[in-house]
Amino acid sequence: TDLARAFPEACIVMGHCGCPLGYGPYAGRKDEVFAAWKASMAELATCPNVSIKLGGMMMRLAAYDYNTRPAPPTSAELASMWGPYIETCIELFGADRAMFESNFPVDRMGIGYAALWNAFKRIVSGASDGVKRGLFAGTARRVYRLD
């Protein structure tokens, strides 16, 4: 947040929903971590030069024990795990400053590519077409100057 405020003309992209953590000293403290993360993200969202990438939390949240489960999470399970974080980011930054991301090949250790994108679709299934266009393409086109 300090960096974004110090350089208001810079286009800054925060990756992986701001990197909430769920392992090491943060394990077993999900509610506390979420509250602190949300407060920090709300502060960052006040900086109009910051956009956020939605995804890339496969390892950071440690919400799914990949080594003990017989199969990767389904898109429904992933949507349930990541939904509160992604929905919070969309609420704080808006669809014009938020974009879905894949973190492949890293995320391949925990979920397939199609299941990942299906999870994103599940999370925003109730959103308007305009919001979906922003999240799935529009914001990335604008931020990365792809048009």
Rank of each mutant, 00 (worst) to 15 (best):
V124G: 09
N118C: 12
P73A: 02
C17L: 05
W82M: 05
A63L: 09
P84S: 04
A6G: 11
T74A: 05
Y26W: 14
T139N: 11
G138N: 12
F100T: 01
F7L: 12
A127S: 14
L61C: 00
D96L: 08
F100V: 07
M57A: 11
Y23T: 12
D129N: 13
L3D: 03
G112E: 07
D129H: 12
C11N: 15
N118K: 15
L44I: 05
G138H: 10
M14T: 09
Y85F: 14
D65H: 11
W37A: 03
F120W: 03
N67I: 07
W37H: 00
M58C: 05
T46L: 01
D147Q: 14
E77K: 08
S128A: 15
G94Q: 04
M41I: 06
S51C: 10
S80N: 10
R145T: 15
D65K: 11
Y113Q: 14
K38N: 07
G94K: 03
M58I: 11
S80A: 14
Y26V: 01
G94L: 06
M109H: 13
E32K: 02
A114N: 08
V131T: 15
M41D: 00
M109C: 12
M109G: 14
R145K: 14
A35N: 04
V50A: 05
T1P: 13
R142A: 14
D31W: 04
L135Q: 08
R133K: 15
V131D: 15
A95E: 14
N103W: 04
L3M: 12
R141T: 11
L21D: 00
D2C: 01
L135F: 02
I90M: 10
G134W: 13
A27S: 06
R5T: 03
Y64H: 12
M57P: 01
T139R: 09
S40C: 00
P70I: 02
Y113P: 08
G18C: 11
L54P: 01
D65I: 04
G138I: 13
D31N: 13
R69V: 06
S125W: 09
V50T: 05
A10K: 14
R145I: 05
G22R: 03
L21N: 03
I123E: 07
A35F: 01
L146M: 14
I12M: 10
Y85L: 03
I111A: 13
I86A: 05
L61P: 00
G15W: 00
V33W: 08
L3W: 11
G18H: 02
A45I: 10
P72Q: 05
G83Y: 02
A6N: 06
